[in-house]
Amino acid sequence: MVLVDRKCKIIHHSQVGPEVYVLGIDAVDVAKHALPGQFVMIGVRGKSAFDPLLRRPFSIAWTDHVKGMIFIFYRVVGRGTRLLSEYMPGTGLELLGPLGRGFSLEVSGRRILVGGGLGIAPIIFLYKWIKASGASATCILGARTGDELLGALKASDISLEDVIITTEDGSLGKKGLVTGPLAKCLDHIGGDATIQACGPAPMLKAVSNLSNHKVRLLEVSLESYMACGIGLCLGCAHKKRGDSEEYVHICKDGPVFDARDVVL
């Protein structure tokens, strides 16, 4: 297992949609070992300052083995991501990763990938991985608006024809939520299918409700606030399914979980 904690240089940084950015980082060893669904912790504060204190978790959106780079796809939602968006190519970023347990890579039967909002990041990685291995999958990606998605797809070299797209405003693909196409998909498949999903909590819940008993496995990637990202602080607790009061830790046990194991 390779685990890097060092300054890595920004090679590429561009805005691809409203408040949405793609960041390419020079980290050859991370690129080589990262698996779809894994994440990195990125330091967003300047030199010798303590604010913001904590590093921020981001999914690895895809890797480029030739250039030895990893890519992050993120939205500015607060101070940390605002600061991150101001970093120029050529500067160094504190990077810790790859971290966590990603998606199952070998699955039998049909495979459906669902990504919503910024949750499309790890789904893009997984989709590219599956294609590179010669296998196939149905990939459903949803966003609020089209320009948010277009930029990410272009940057990651995914053709619009290969994926099913939904937008809430109807500006690209089908108007509506990812659950629309997913429901259709589920009507046509037998029980031996796997869904792998990442997105906002309500989306994951809807996907889970839809797929109940219809698929063999539903894997979901979860989020929470994180302090360390490596299992030290127990801050990233998420309730386990069942009556007992027990928690999983998203950074270490996940971020990808079998949906049967956690409360959605």
Partner: peptide, 17 residues
């Protein structure tokens, strides 16, 4: 088992847990 989440929150130069 510990407390229900959220368990941590960042404050200026600090961590609340």
């Amino acid at each position: 088992p510990g407390n229900p989440p959220p368990r941590i929150f960042e404050t200026p130069c600090g961590l609340l847990n």
